[in-house]
Computed example of a mutant assay.
Amino acid sequence: MRVDLFDFDLPPENIALRPARPRDAARMLVAKGAGPLADRQVRDLPEVLRAGDVLVFNDTRVIPAQLEGLRGEARIGATLHKRIDLRRWQAFVRNAKRLRPGDAIAFPAEVMGVAEERHDDGSWTLAFPGDEPVEVLLERAGRMPLPPYIAAKRPTDEADASDYQTMFAREKGAVAAPTAALHFTPGLVDALDAAGVARETLTLHVGAGTFLPVKAEDTSDHRMHSEWGRIDAATADRLNKARAAGGRVIAVGTTSLRLLESATGEDGVIRPFEGDTAIFITPGYRFNAIDGLMTNFHLPKSTLFMLVSALMGLERMQAVYAHAIGDGYRFYSYGDSSLLIP
């Protein structure tokens, strides 16, 4: 499909630079099939969902994966986006033309990185000498990797350290938050428990590739970056039993959805999964694992807007987004939410 089919105009004032407070006060646009749209709040979820439904969260934790350093006099910026092994990460590098294989980059707090190899997509493998875990080094030298559409408008500050983590964050490794779950609070979770709505967690370490623009003119020419994820056997079994009993599996965020779909065959059975996935979902895709999606509002011509268009239909999503823009919904990572049920 032509990528320009997924374009739309978004006024700058619709881009959220801070989250709603409290988190569950964010607005939520509910779209069920071809029925009328409903303007709700995230805290209304216990009324909108039904007993037996299962919300599936991503428990990945964002690490301070942005680094600023020097190679000689040259300033080098690096955003780690995928672990290769204990000492090496793949990274998008700013001012990469100043790097050669073997160059050392001096980051703050006496953290050193070595540029090992340049990849076809322009990213680099960075190695970190020493015995300390790379995550420990990042805690000293790195900063929270806010999305570019926020970072370009304001500096990262102390509030982002907590604002850009979900209440479910546990497994360190993401360089972008699973933002649909940023709206949840302990009080909302208690209300969902009381309403009989179950929850499960999986892990997908979100990479910085999620923010990369689609440069191809046709979706068939776009290459997705892979991300590592895991669903254990017990979780898969509970989800299969919930669906067999008539419950709906609602992915909280596109990250949960993509991992669930990667783990599920055409028979609709969710299986244990551990490894990389580069699944790219566009209109025409047949969903096997999920019955709905809770997600924020996405960028024009992005792979994520293509995904929601695959779930609901492109014309339907164009209408949903037109309503959201016209009614002042806040977009992107710190923005409002939608609940999409085909």
Rank of each mutant, 00 (worst) to 15 (best):
G52K: 14
D157H: 15
D157S: 15
M294I: 15
A198K: 13
H183E: 02
R258G: 00
R94Y: 12
D131N: 14
P64H: 12
D131H: 11
E315P: 00
N288L: 15
M312P: 06
L212R: 00
R143I: 14
A177F: 14
D190K: 15
R40D: 02
L259Y: 03
D190M: 08
V189E: 07
L340K: 02
D218N: 03
D131F: 12
W124C: 06
M306W: 01
R140E: 05
L80S: 02
E116W: 06
P145H: 12
L86S: 13
D39I: 14
G187A: 10
A278N: 09
T254C: 07
A169D: 08
W89M: 13
P11Q: 13
T79G: 04
R87P: 04
K82L: 06
R18H: 10
F57C: 13
A96W: 04
L259M: 02
A180Q: 07
T235M: 06
G69Q: 12
L80F: 07
K32T: 15
K241W: 08
S162W: 09
A127D: 07
V48P: 06
A234Y: 02
R2I: 04
R316C: 05
I325T: 08
R87H: 11
D193T: 11
V3Y: 02
P19R: 08
R23D: 10
L202W: 00
A176G: 09
M224W: 01
D160R: 15
G292I: 01
P342I: 07
A245R: 10
D291R: 13
P133S: 15
L182V: 08
M312G: 09
I270P: 09
I325W: 04
S262W: 02
V111G: 05
G196P: 01
T219S: 09
I76H: 10
D291C: 12
L304R: 02
A141C: 14
E117W: 03
P342W: 03
T210S: 11
L10I: 05
A174N: 12
M112T: 09
F57T: 15
L37M: 14
H222C: 01
G247I: 09
F273G: 03
D163F: 13
A151R: 10
A242G: 06
G326W: 14
I84S: 07
I250W: 03
L259N: 06
L304T: 05
S338G: 08
S337R: 05
V214M: 00
S333F: 00
D237M: 09
W124T: 06
T203S: 01
T79I: 12
L314M: 09
P147N: 09
G284A: 08
G209W: 00
A310G: 01
A25K: 10
A74N: 07
M112C: 11
F6P: 00
G77K: 13
Y332P: 03
A180I: 07
E135C: 14
R286T: 11
P129R: 13
E200M: 04
R154P: 07
V48L: 15
R71M: 11
A208V: 01
S309E: 01
D327K: 15
N58S: 14
Y285R: 01
T125W: 10
V249R: 06
D59P: 10
H205A: 05
R94S: 12
A194P: 02
D327R: 15
